[in-house]
C-alpha cells in the first residue's frame, strides 16, 4: 500500500500542526504543509498530491481563489480538493461545493476523527 500525498493549506500553524499529526499517524498520509494559497500553487506541480485540504479564510489569496487557480492546472485534473471552514451553516457548505470542492470539513474538528472524515469524503466521491 503506497502512502498517499496530502497537501494541507492553512495560514494557521496551530491547525497545520495538529492536522498534520493526525493525518499522518491515523490516516497514513504523507502530509505536506503550505501556509498560503501562493505557497500551495508553487509546490503543487512537483508534489502531485492525491488530495488537497484547503482553508477557506486566508489572507491575500483565500480558499476559493486558490481552488480556482488549482483547478486551472492540468496536473490537478480530478484531484479532490476539500475545504476546511469555520462556518458551520449548510448553506455555506453548499456554496463552497458549487465552487468545485469535493467536500467541506468544519473547524473546529476532532483531530482523532479528521482522517476518517477525509476518507469518508474521498470514498463518497
Amino acid at each position: 500500500m503506497n502512502r498517499r500525498n496530502l497537501l494541507l493549506v492553512d495560514d494557521e500553524s496551530d491547525i497545520r500542526r495538529v492536522a498534520h499529526l493526525s493525518l499522518q499517524h491515523i490516516g497514513g498520509w504523507h502530509v505536506h504543509e503550505a501556509a498560503s494559497g501562493a505557497e500551495a500553487l508553487s509546490v503543487v506541480e512537483e508534489l502531485r498530491p492525491d488530495v488537497v485540504l484547503l482553508d477557506v479564510m486566508m489572507p491575500e489569496m483565500d480558499g476559493p481563489a486558490t481552488l480556482a487557480r488549482l483547478r486551472e492546472l492540468p496536473r490537478m485534473n480530478g484531484v479532490p480538493i476539500v475545504f476546511l471552514t469555520a462556518k458551520a451553516l449548510s448553506s455555506d457548505h453548499e456554496r463552497l461545493r458549487t465552487l468545485g470542492a469535493s467536500g467541506v470539513l468544519t473547524k473546529p474538528f476532532d483531530p482523532l476523527l479528521l482522517p476518517g472524515m477525509v476518507d469518508a469524503i474521498l470514498e463518497g466521491r
Partner: peptide
C-alpha cells in the same frame, strides 16, 4: 476571533 474559533475547538 475567527482564528480562535477554529483552532481552540480543534485543540
Amino acid at each position: 476571533a475567527h482564528r480562535i474559533h477554529g483552532t481552540a475547538g480543534t485543540y
